[in-house]
Structure formats: C-alpha cells, structure tokens
Design a protein around this nucleic acid. Structure first.
Lengths: 221, 221, 221, 221
DNA sequence: TATGAATGAGGATTCATTCAT
DNA sequence: GATGAATGAATCCTCATTCAT
C-alpha cells in the first residue's frame, strides 16, 4: 500500500555509511560521522547524563580528545547529534506530498515511512532521547518545535483539510489537534522504550487500526 | 460534564499536605513525604542522573544523611517516588467504573480525572519521568507494566466492548489497540514537557476532539 | 604437666558472664560489660577503623546512644576494651610464680595458661588488635609497655636467672632478650590471624618444641 | 660476620629510586612507583582504613584521579603495594643459599639480610602491615602464604636438616616448627611497631642471641 | 591533527556523634 | 538513664575537560 515511499527514502542522506574518503576534508567528515554514530548508540542507551565521553570515543574508535576537536563539549555533541541525525528524516516525513491520491493512502505511506525509517532504526532511540532530555535542553526543544513540530503539524493540517474537502473525513476535530493524527507514533516510541520486552507492539497494525478509526474501516480487498 | 468524578477524587489520599503531626510515627511519615515531595520536584526538573541528593535534602529541609534513613539509595528513592505518588492515582484511573451511563460519558470522566489529578498536578512530571527514565529502570518498567498498564488496558477493553455492544462504537479496531484510546494522554505528557512554553496545549479540548473522532461529534446542546 | 594452672585461672574475673544483677549499679556494670564484649567481637573482626559503633550497639543489645553514656567516644571504648579485658589476664601471666619447681615446669604452665586463656579465647583477637592498632594509639602502646611488657619481661628475667642458677639453662643470651622466651606466643598470634585457614598451627606442640630447644629435649617418660 | 650478603643484595631492584625517565613508559612507571612509595608511607603510618587516597596523592605529587589510572581502587593499591615492594625481597630471603658453609653462617647472613633490607627500611612497616591488615585481606594472606611463607618454611627446613646432618643442631624440634627459626624476625617487627620509642631493640644482637641459643654460644674470637 | 595521561571539581554514601523525647 | 532519629563532615570514586607530546 505504500509504493511511493521508495522515492522519498532514496533521497535521504545516508548518515550511517559514509563512503570511503581520501581527502582530508572527507576523512574529517567521516570521523565526525563516526563520533555521531557512536554518540547515538551511547546516548540512546544511557541517556545524556549517564553517557561517558570515554565510551563514545571507544565506540567511535577515536581518542577521547578527538571528540573535543569536533564538538565543543558534551552538550554540543548531544545537540548536534539530534539535529544532524534526526531533523533530515523528520523533515522528510513532514514534507507531506500532495497529489491526487486519497489522503488515507498518503497517511499510510507516511506511517510506513515512519515505521521503516524511524521506528525500525536507531533513530527511534534518538526520538525518544528528544522526549527524555528535551525538557533539560530548552534550546533543543525550541529548535525542534520550529524545525520539526510546527512544520509537521502544518503539513498534517493540509492533509486533514484535503481529506475533509474530499469527504474522506467528516469530523473537523482533527484540524484543531493534528497531534492526534500522529499520536500513535508517540505512543509507539514510548511503549517500545518501556514495555517492548513484556509486550511487543505490532506498530504497523496499530497504525492501520488508527487510520481505520479515523477514516472508517476499509472493506477487505 | 464530569460531575461524578468528585466523589472518587475526594477519597484519594492527599499525599502532598500531611496534617500536623506529633507522634514519632507521624513525624517520620511526614518527613518521608517531605523528602518524596522534594524528590519529585528535583527529579522532574533535572531527571534522575542530574539530580543531586544534596538538593533534594535542601529542598526537603533535612540533612543529606536523613534521606538515607528513609531510602537505601538514590535509585530506591526514585522508584519509591514513582510507586508511591503515581500508582494509587493511576490505579484509580484504571479502575474503570461500570454502570449504565454511556461509555463516552465514562471516558469523559476518565479524561477529566486524568487532566485534573495527573496532568494538572506535579504528577504530570512524574509520569513523564516514568516514560523517560523507565528504559533505564527495568524493574520500574516491569512494575508499571503489571501494576498499571496491564490493568488499565484491560479496563479499557471492557469499556470498548461495552461501547461496541451498545452501538456507541462501530469499529472494532480499538479492541486490539486500547493504547489508542489513551494515546492523547501520552501525547499531552510528552508535549507539555517539551513544547508547553512555545505552544501550550488545551488538553481538555484535545481530549474532547479525540472522543469526537472516536464516537462522532456531539450535537451542540 | 600444668596442674597448678587451675588455681590461678579460677581467680580471674570472668568478664564474659556477668551474674544476674538487680541493683542499678549492677545493671549498669552489666551493660558496660555487654558493650565491651560486643566491642571485642567487632573490633577484632573488623579492626578499629572499620568497626561501626552501630554494630557494636546492635550486638550488645543497646541503642547506639547508650554506648556514649559509658564511653566518651569510639577511641575510649577501644582503649578501655583493651585495658579491661586483656590486662588482668596478661598480668596474671606475667606474675610468674616462683617456687621450688623446675623453671621449665613453670614455663610449661605459663604457656599452657597462655594457650588456654588467651590463644584459645577471643582474647587472642584482642592481643592481635593491640599489635594491629597499637602503632596508631601511642597511649595504648605506652600503657601496654609499662603495664604489661615491662613487668612480663622482668618476670621472665627472674625465671631465666633462676634457670641459669639451677643449671637448667647454660646460655646467658636469653637474659638479654627475654623476648625470645615468649617469641612463640607472638608467632602464634600472628600466624593464627593470617594463615590458620591454610595451615593451622599446633601451638601447644610448638611451645614444647620451643622449650625443648631452650632446655634440651626431655627424655620420653 | 655476614660478608657474603652484599653480593646478593646488590642485585636487587632498587624500587625506591627510579632513574630519570624520559619515554612515556618510563614516566608512567616512575609515576606508579611514586604512588606506591607514597602509599607505603601512608598505609604504614595510618593503616589501610585510616589512609586517605587524597593524602597518598598529595604525597606522591599527583592528582587524586591519577591514582585511579594506575590502580582500580584503594584495595588494589594496597595489595599491589605489598606484592610489588615486599615479595621480591622476601622471596630472595626465602631462597636460602646452599653451599658448604656452616648452616649457622648461612643463618647469620640470612638475618643480616633481613635486618638490612627489611627491618632497616620502610619495608619493615610494610611487613607489619601484612601482619596486621592481612586478616582482612584473605586474598593477600593466601598469596603470601603460597608465595612467601610456604617457600620460606621449606627453605628453612632444608637448612635445619643440613644443620642436623652436620651436627650443628642436636635437636629435631625445629624441623617440625621452622617458624621458631624466624620467630625473632616476627618479634622484631611487632616490637618496633609498638615499643621502639620506649625501648628500642638491638635487633642484630637479638638475632645473635637467638642463634646462640639454638647452636650454642660461639667462643669469642 | 590526534592522542590519552593527568587533572580536580563534583556527588553518592557512610558513620561518629548529638540531642530531643 | 536510654533511645534512635537526625546531622553533616569526611572520603571514595567518577568523568568532563585540558594539554603536552
């Protein structure tokens, strides 16, 4: 049901597999990426405060001091991490593609994308990290609000309006709270951090249930 | 719209305002409460790792050592905090009240209760703490899963089934994912931690929008 | 071979089994004894620094504060312990009984007494404690030197002189270093603390070997 | 009387005076030595429990944290100290030198060596530490038993057997308790810790008296 | 640039001692 | 006298950050 996603996905920067690099600048960039990748693992496993620069360095295969050549301090590393590795993806999600297709199909694509590119990857942890540490990093939260949330909500509103216009949706309630449209994403992130070991969640199914609730159940093909 | 909640709420222990106490046991309990209250403030402002026992002590008006008379270590303080101050309320929420009223009314009461007793109090921060620090406290997560989540989801399922039986709901999707029923609560908690200063959320309105989406919009009285 | 010891032993204060007491003074004395007995166990198991007043109190069956009614502080408790519970016994040992018996018999009695009343009891630990902590308690060491060691050495010298006069000993070397006469006692104390679990020492046999070396082997009876 | 000792002694590593060092490895080793030397002073003055890492650091001229680069914790520092600075010397002592000389001469060399290399140095305090703190460091005690004591006693037995064979000793008692041969060393260590300030011991003279007692007095040259 | 040894401020925890009951 | 809750100084250990090489 989400055939159009590939195109979008393929245009994303692949932050995790820097190509072989030979120039100084390329090497430097690769190193930066390696540090960020290591930081992602450590921060999302331990949280900001409990993560040790030492461990990030070890995981990145560089010396501790090297990290300070690329990032001014631990906090900057953290903020850079979140900005660099999450924003492009979330922005892509937010950039909902208009067109003639039914809005429900678009949303299905959207959720598929979310599941595959965020939830099914380490970025899930990063997203949780934003929720976890955001309150203590107002700058980060503000950045996120403006760079991601505002835009995403605006995009959602566009979709909702079209759905209302097309008669796919009857209820205007969503227009006021587009958050409700993405609520299952939040739930999935939170749930996976806490309860996955006790009761793993079939998040794709949940997304469909969510859409069924909003748009009415689909007739089985 | 939620007139029946008062009764329930009024029977809850008011953990935050211990009465004047004179016996040793009372004093001791009062001190414990003071420490927990201070811990709530500090933990929810700083998170687990960044909170200093010293600050909790100062805020509670006791010496650092005193905290260790009541709690074995920082971790136990944190876990006790969450168990003591959140579980009774969340349990109460989970104990969905049967009766002849429409399910939607019950859910409205439920959300009202949530807004008033959790979201509108410091317990909101506590709940956020569970969501964010939980991944690093597996025991806490397990405890929550069994004590709160399982029960809450079961209660939700009962309500959903009744709503289906009564014809209030048409769609069985919710039965499989009762999480979707409470998703707005999760969203509200996360949002408030991150973005309230940029865009405060009218959570009551959002709850109503949510119910409108599920049950169909109410005709204006 | 040490039949005469009983008498001596029987006149010693039995510090460990205070009789039932009813007057206030008796009760108080009993409590003091209980604290000292508990302190003995704890100090000799943990050493001075690692012993907690709390544990002494628990073991003595009194409240922590009570200890401070009987002893000014931890250090005084320690010094009192050593003075009260060791000096009488060591003094008794030092008070070598002259008489007509061969000196070797006297020494055998002496060593028997040591084995039975010191080495075979908790006082062994106490004695080790003096060796352990003495360097950091100069007052204690001084007290010991004057109250115990000087006197004991003087008594040893008397015995040695008599042995020389009687022809039991040929060599005057001991006169200059009576420490050598009691060296096996020191060795036994040290050994038992360190190596008993790997190689328990038959201390009585060692004492006899020691005497055999000094006085010549006895012909088998 | 102990002319042959020099040679042996001169081959020992002089752990206390690391040479000027320039390579990183040398610097690192020098630092380690400095810490160990400082630890020796502090531990032997205060005992294990009362010694503060801070003071060791100050005395070694390094920062507190530096100590933890070289030793995992206080306990490891202590154990390393004892192993590194004592074992080589004690082992050397234990490696009794065979030859054609009279056993008594060998023992005189042995005691001279002990007096010069252990008793006359800070290692005396270290040895006292083993004796006094050993009971609370079972691993250390076990290590010592197998690395030092067992070997030393075996070496002593060899010497004693030869002395018996050569007719230097008449009495077989020592064979069973070679501890008695080294008892004066123990006594000297204990005495020096406790009573040196009140009555310093002429340990060389005591050693000779001891040998005179065992082997019979020497005719004055 | 890269390294990793060194630093030392910071924070959790312990425990001797006090004191209100 | 007896209690044990409360105190807070003391101390171990960690880890972000610096800097000589």
């Amino acid at each position: 049901m989400a055939k159009s996603i590939q195109t979008v996905a393929s245009t994303w920067p692949d932050v995790h597999r820097p190509s072989q690099s030979h120039t100084r600048a390329q090497k430097s960039a690769a190193r930066r990426e390696a540090i960020l990748a290591a930081a992602l693992d450590e921060f999302s496993a331990q949280g900001f405060a409990a993560t040790r620069i030492d461990d990030v360095a070890k995981r990145a295969g560089v010396a501790k001091g090297t990290i300070y050549l690329y990032f001014h301090d631990k906090e900057e590393l953290f903020q850079e991490l979140v900005r660099t590795m999450l924003v492009p993806h979330v922005s892509a999600l937010a950039a909902a593609q208009p067109g003639e297709r039914p809005v429900r199909d678009l949303l299905e694509s959207f959720f598929e994308l979310f599941v595959r590119e965020i939830y099914g990857t380490k970025r899930r942890n990063l997203l949780r990290l934003v929720m976890t540490e955001g309150p203590r990093f107002p700058k980060l939260a503000e950045f996120y609000y403006h760079e991601v949330v505002e835009r995403a909500l605006a995009a959602m509103r566009v979709l909702i309006e079209r759905a209302l216009a097309r008669g796919e949706l009857k209820n205007e309630a969503l227009l006021q709270f587009p958050q409700l449209l993405v609520a299952p994403c939040i739930v999935a992130i939170v749930w996976s951090g806490l309860f996955d070991r006790y009761a793993p969640l079939d998040i794709s199914a949940m997304m469909h249930a969510h859409l069924d609730l909003l748009f009415g159940a689909r007739k089985p093909a």
